[in-house]
């Protein structure tokens, strides 16, 4: 099945600077993380998909259309830029209604869509206030809302959590997840934060120095390990010494016990050790790799 976005041997050079070098990847339905440090070529890739620039060589397609040949390809795309892009003297309601019409929706439907989307992003109460008085988090929501107001098939989010405090970041990532799972809108999330990709994406494409260095399902990179994590409310020391006595390899990390190479026999032994010590178990689960572990490991290997 062809991807919503396709890049084939995509190269973009600005003079002597190469922003993208023979990049080949596809973005399918769901959430795809475009992960890479600053200068990796993420913004260039977005501009190519939006048809704002032409590739030096190779090809780029948006739902089968060449975006730099016709603006029609943009009718079903949404874009949330990283930088500030909002007017200050109009209300979110007025602005969204306008942007819906700029995307081709008739005025009546534009008004309804603007109200619906603002409610979905949590700006129902504040929608008639001028945007200039909004907090950073609210402005990020308006930016997301304008990208969704015309009901795109796919939305390109450029660093959606930039500038947000931890709470705001959590809320934005929740919104990204809702957009994909509840609204059914596919997402390409461009970010330099692995945590954002882990929290939201099904697939990840890693760009470094303009080249695709990794791509695949996020699960593939964050699958379960054979290490068990045990979290106990009390009796931690007794369980630890019991497990060591049983010949198991146990490490302590923060308040957790980490048991490596855990098989069925080890699960039974842990159960018995906890029961013997009369300890109270809060959590027993296999740990998962994180994208951070993988890339840190690769760089260390390299």
């Amino acid at each position: 099945m062809p991807g919503l976005l396709e890049a084939k041997n995509l190269t973009k050079r600005y003079g002597s600077t190469t922003a993208l070098e023979s990049a080949t990847f596809e973005v399918h339905e769901g959430v795809t993380g475009l992960l890479g440090p600053n200068g990796a070529g993420k913004s260039t890739a977005i501009k190519l998909f939006l048809g704002l620039i032409k590739p030096t060589s190779g090809s780029v397609a948006v739902m089968g259309l060449a975006p730099y040949e016709s603006v029609t390809a943009r009718t079903r795309l949404g874009y949330m830029p990283e930088h500030e892009t909002l007017p200050t003297n109009v209300s979110a309601s007025e602005f969204l209604m306008h942007m819906a019409q700029v995307s081709g929706l008739p005025p009546g439907q534009a008004r309804t869509r603007a109200a619906d989307i603002l409610r979905h992003v949590g700006l129902d109460e504040e929608r008639y206030r001028p945007i200039g008085g909004y907090s950073t988090g609210m402005r990020q929501r308006v930016k997301l809302a304008q990208a969704l107001v015309h009901d795109p098939v796919l939305v390109l989010l450029d660093e959606p959590t930039a500038g947000l405090d931890p709470e705001g970041r959590e809320e934005m990532l929740d919104l990204v997840n809702r957009t994909a799972k509840e609204f059914g809108i596919s997402i390409m999330l461009s970010t330099h934060l692995m945590g954002d990709v882990e929290r939201t994406a099904d697939r990840v494409i890693v760009l470094e120095g303009g080249q695709v260095t990794e791509q695949g399902a996020v699960d593939q990179y964050t699958q379960e390990t054979e290490t068990l994590i045990i979290e106990l409310e009390e009796g931690r020391e007794a369980v630890l010494s019991d497990l060591i006595r049983r010949g198991m390899k146990v490490e302590t990390k923060d308040n957790f016990l980490m048991v490596e190479n855990a098989g069925e026999a080890e699960y039974d032994a842990i159960r018995d050790a906890i029961a013997d010590a009369g300890a109270r178990l809060r959590r027993l689960s296999p740990t998962r790799h994180t994208l951070t572990d993988i890339f840190r490991g690769e760089r260390a290997d390299g």
Binding site: T72, R74, P81, E84, N89, V102, S103, Q146
Partner: peptide, 17 residues
Amino acid sequence: PDRRDRVLDLYLVRPLT
């Protein structure tokens, strides 16, 4: 204002030239 607030960026990624 469209250039100062960069609203122009939002226009030019929509179906218009």
